[in-house]
Design a protein around this nucleic acid. Structure first.
Lengths: 344, 344
DNA sequence: TTAATTCAGGCAATCGATTGACAAACCCTG
DNA sequence: CAGGGTTTGTCAATCGATTGCCTGAATTAA
C-alpha cells in the first residue's frame, strides 16, 4: 500500500541505501541523484516508516505520559508543557489517562513499554504505584514523576514544595483569625497529600492552635469527594470557620455543598485551596489559592527525562521542587478576635 | 538490552514461534509448554515489542490526535473522550498540539503518518488546512474532523450544530430586549465561525433587526483577541447593550476588558458565549453559554474513526451534528423596551 | 496392528529501513 | 598515463515478531 524506500529507489534509478542517505541528510550523494530521489519521493508521496527505523535503530522517538485526567485544569497544562518541550527534540507523546486507577495505570505502563517509549513521565495514582514503577527503576528505564513522588522509589521527580505552600496558605487563614480550620484531605496515599498535611500542621503549630484530627476529612480528591467532605464539615456541632481544600476539584465540590446549604462565601465560611482554576480568576476573582506553575514544572520534568534518555546525567535521582504562589482573593474573610470576649 | 522472543524461547526450551503463539493466545500450544513459556516471560520481564509486531502486521495500534491546545477547557475533554473510547479497542493516542499553526499542523500530520498511525482525529486550524488534509483523503486515510469541518473536504466530521446553537443564543439576547448586539467573531477561516455568524444573522433577522457589519469584530479566538475586541466594542459611540462572544476564551478576554473599564455585568453590558468553562459554573454561575457535549462528540468521532480503520463503512463521508445546549445564567440582563417611548 | 486423523511445534521468509564492508568510477598529481 | 585518494553507490545482514508450510508424534478407529 504505502511506498517504501525500494519503490523510491527504483523510480529514481538508484539503490535503497542512497535514498536512505537522502532522507537522513547524510553525505555521499550527488546533487543529481538527490534531485531525482526527491522528485521520486514527492511523486510517490513517500513517508519513511518510523516503525521500521525505530526497529533497527532502537529509538522510537516516543515518550509516554500518564496523568489521572488530561481534562483536569492542572494536568491539561502539564501535558501541554510536556508536549511543547518534547516536540522541540523530535519526540512525540503517547498519552494515557489513568483515572487514578492503579490497575489501569499498571496496564498502561506495560503497554507503553511494549510500544518501546524511550521514557515515561507519570503522575502516579498513589504510593501504591510503587510496585509497578519499581520494575522500571530497576531496569534503569528513564522515568520522571511529576506532581507527586513515591516514597521509597529512587527516581527523578518534579513537584511543588507542598509543605511550604500549604503552610503559607493555612498561615494566611490563621492570620485572618481562623482557629477552627477543616482540612479536606486525600485518602493518605500520595506524597502531595502528606506534605500538604504537614504544612497544615506546621501552620497550626506556628499559630499555637492544637491539631485536631476530627477536622481532617479524608476523601477522594475529586469534586464529589469535596462535596461530601464539605457536607460533613457543615454537619459538625462546632462548625469550622474556614476550610482548606487539598486541590481545585475538592474545592469546587465544597463550593457546591456550601451553596446548596445557602451559605455565603466568605461571610459564613471561608475557603482556600491548592491549584488555581485557569480563567476562573478573570471571570470571578474569588478563590484564594496556591497557584502551581504547571507548564514550567512539566517543561522541567521533560528536560530531566530527555537527559536520562541521553544518559547525560549520573544515575543519582534528582528531585526538583517548585515554589507555590499564594494568591489572595475573596474567599477568605477576617474573623474578629472574639474568643477572649466570649470567655469574659 | 530488552529480552526478545528468542530469549524467551531459549529459556523455555521451545521455538520462537511457540512463544509467539502464547503471547497472542493462539491455539496449538500444550499446557506444559505454555507454563514454561509464561515462567520464562516472567523471569526475563519480557515485553513483546509492538514495534516489531507493528511492522510485520502493518498495524501500529496508534491513533493520532491533533488539537490546537489540550489545556483549553473545550479540547481537554475532547482528548479525554477520544482516549477513553480508543483505549477500549486497544488503541493508544499520539497527541499533538497544533497551536492553531498551519505549518506546525502540517508537520505533525506528516510525522504521524510516518509513525504509521492507523487513523487521525483532528480539529483543523482553519479552512487552509485543506491542502494538507486533502492528500490524506485522496489516499483514503482514516480521518475524522472534530469541532470544525473544512469546506470542500470530503471526509467524516463531528461538530456542533453551530447555526442553530448560535441562533438560539442570540435569539435569547433579542428576546431580552437587546437590539445592538456585538459579535466577537473569528478571522473567518473556520466552518465553526461561519456557522455561528450565520446563526447570529438569522436570529437578528427573526427579530427584525438589520444586520450591521460594524458590530462584527473579527479577531483571534483567544483571550487576548476577546480582550481587544471588547475594548473596541466599548469605544463605540453607540455602545452595544450585549456582546456575543464566539467562544469561551474570547468571552474571558471580554470580561477582563469590561472589568478594567469598571463596567458591571450584566447591569452595564450583557455577555453570552459558546463553550461552558467546566467547574466555573459551580463556583460562579454567571456566564450564559452554549454548552457543547465535548466528550460525547469525541466518543462519536472515535467510533467513526474506528469504523473507517476497520473498513466497516462505505467511503461516503459522514457528518455528525450535535445540538448545543443553551444554559441561562446571570450574564444577560433584560432591557426595558424603551425605543417606542423614545420615539413618542 | 495398522492406517487415518489430529495436533504440537519447528523452519524460513517477511515487514521496511539502516549500515558496515566493499566495489566501481572519478579526480588529481607526478 | 598510472596509481593513490575520494566520491558514489551496491550487497547482504540486521532489528524482533509473525505466519504459512511442514514434519513428526500421539491418538483413535478399524
Amino acid at each position: 500500500m504505502a511506498a517504501t524506500v525500494r519503490d523510491v529507489a527504483r523510480l529514481a534509478g538508484v539503490s535503497a541505501m542512497t535514498v536512505s542517505r537522502v532522507i537522513n541528510d547524510r553525505p555521499g550523494v550527488s546533487a543529481d541523484a538527490r534531485a531525482k530521489i526527491e522528485a521520486a519521493i514527492a511523486q510517490l508521496d513517500y513517508a519513511p516508516s518510523k516503525i521500521a527505523s525505530s526497529l533497527i535503530r532502537s529509538k522510537s522517538e516516543l515518550v509516554g505520559v500518564i496523568v489521572p485526567d488530561v481534562s483536569n485544569p492542572f494536568f491539561g497544562p502539564v501535558v501541554r508543557g510536556i508536549e511543547a518541550r518534547a516536540r522541540r527534540e523530535g519526540y512525540r507523546l503517547l498519552l494515557c489517562n489513568s483515572e487514578s486507577d492503579l490497575r489501569l495505570e499498571r496496564d498502561y505502563i506495560a503497554d507503553l513499554v511494549s510500544h518501546r517509549v524511550e521514557g515515561l513521565i507519570i503522575a502516579p495514582a498513589s504510593d501504591r504505584s510503587r510496585s509497578h514503577l519499581e520494575r522500571l527503576v530497576a531496569k534503569n528505564f528513564p522515568l520522571v514523576l511529576i506532581d507527586r513522588y513515591v516514597r521509597g522509589l529512587a527516581c527523578d521527580s518534579v513537584a511543588l514544595d507542598n509543605v511550604a505552600a500549604a503552610q503559607s496558605l493555612v498561615s494566611h487563614l490563621t492570620s485572618m483569625g481562623h482557629r477552627r480550620i477543616a482540612f479536606i484531605a486525600d485518602a493518605g496515599q500520595t506524597s502531595t497529600g502528606d506534605e500538604r498535611m504537614e504544612g497544615y500542621q506546621r501552620a497550626l503549630a506556628a499559630a499555637g492552635i492544637p491539631f485536631n484530627p476530627d477536622l481532617v476529612f479524608r476523601t477522594s480528591t475529586d469534586q464529589i469527594g469535596g462535596y461530601r467532605a464539605a457536607q460533613l464539615v457543615l454537619s459538625m456541632e462546632q462548625r469550622p470557620t474556614a476550610v482548606f481544600a487539598i486541590n481545585n476539584m475538592t474545592a469546587i465540590g465544597a463550593v457546591q455543598a456550601f451553596r446548596e446549604a445557602e451559605l455565603r462565601l466568605p461571610e459564613d465560611i471561608s475557603l482556600a485551596c491548592f491549584d488555581d482554576v485557569p480563567h476562573l480568576a478573570i471571570i470571578a476573582p474569588f478563590l484564594t489559592v496556591i497557584d502551581q506553575p504547571a507548564e514550567q514544572m512539566a517543561g522541567a520534568a521533560t528536560s530531566m527525562l530527555l537527559e536520562r534518555i541521553r544518559h547525560e546525567v549520573s544515575d543519582k535521582p534528582r528531585a526538583a521542587k517548585f515554589p507555590g504562589q499564594l494568591v489572595l482573593r475573596a474567599s477568605v474573610a477576617k474573623i474578629p478576635s472574639a474568643p477572649s470576649k466570649d470567655l469574659a
